[in-house]
Simulated scan of single mutants.
Amino acid sequence: MSHTAHIRSHRKPRRSASTIAMRAGVAGGVLSTLAVAGASGSANAAEPVTQTLELPTLTADLAAQVAQSADVTQQAAASYELQAERDAAAARAAKQAEADLAEAKKKAEEEKKKKAEEAARKAAAERASRTAERATLSASVDTGSSDSSGSSVSSSSATGSAAAVIAFVQAQVGDAYVTGGTGPNSWDCSGLVQAAFKQVNIDLPRVSQSQSTAGTQVSLDNLQPGDILYWGGAGSAYHVGVYVGDGMFVGAQNSSTGVVQAPLSYDPPSGAVRVL
């Protein structure tokens, strides 16, 4: 073996044929590019330069903004739709409320009409009852009635102030009875008595309790035309009338009979006072 067999050679390694060819191709490409660039430069020097605009690139931020805008638009549409539904519901509710009000008014009118008809029937029945009562009393007077002692009675022969009081109360026979009534076509018991004595300039208290003590107490066996009859206790009477003579009295009795002329036996009084 040679003494130089293990010594590395200082000669450069030979390049392979493929490496040489690749380098040659690269060099050729560079030269070609330079040639084209030179030619292009010459051509550009002769032709006008045309400016071009580049469109913006859709970045991630712009895409997010677009998506957000779409969400806002969708939310606004949903809000408008919800508001439209609410408006429609409110309109339906208002229409229903109007219909309910009209129905309530209709029912109220029908109920009012029904009550008016019922009141009219009741009033007609009361008038018929009073007419029948007056007819009965008139027949009793015409055929002759008895006072509490059983003697026959005839028309009163009162004179003066008593005659004026009696004429007034008899003129009101047939009028209606109304609580608190003081005429001219409706009365309560004390209102009729007060108005009758006012005809002869005597001012009586307004209520029956006071009228029952307004004059001198007299016995029912010693009555005179024009005496005030009362029912209940003196000072606590609940009803008054006027004695017209011959065992008869006139009084505003109640809402069923109105003002009547009747015998004492029809409704016997408790006592009497004399103011004439």
Rank of each mutant, 00 (worst) to 15 (best):
V165E: 02
S190M: 14
L53G: 15
A88P: 11
R92P: 03
I202D: 00
G160E: 13
T50A: 05
H6D: 09
G174T: 00
S270D: 02
R130A: 06
A162R: 11
S40P: 09
A171S: 13
A214P: 04
K106V: 03
G144F: 04
A176T: 06
A84P: 07
V259A: 00
S138E: 03
D227L: 05
R86G: 07
S156R: 04
R86S: 09
D175V: 11
E118D: 10
V141C: 05
S42V: 14
Q209F: 04
S145Q: 11
P184N: 15
A27E: 10
R14L: 12
D227R: 03
G233R: 06
V240R: 07
E47Q: 12
G25T: 11
A76L: 15
A24W: 08
A124V: 00
E118F: 08
L137N: 00
N185P: 06
T131L: 07
A128C: 09
F249Q: 02
P263D: 01
A89K: 15
E111C: 08
S255I: 00
Q253Y: 01
T19S: 15
A21M: 15
A135Q: 05
S40N: 09
A116T: 06
K107T: 02
A35S: 10
G251L: 03
S210R: 13
D71S: 15
Q261C: 05
T136S: 02
M22N: 08
S145R: 07
E111I: 02
V260L: 02
E118S: 02
W187K: 01
I202G: 03
G232Q: 02
S152M: 07
S79C: 11
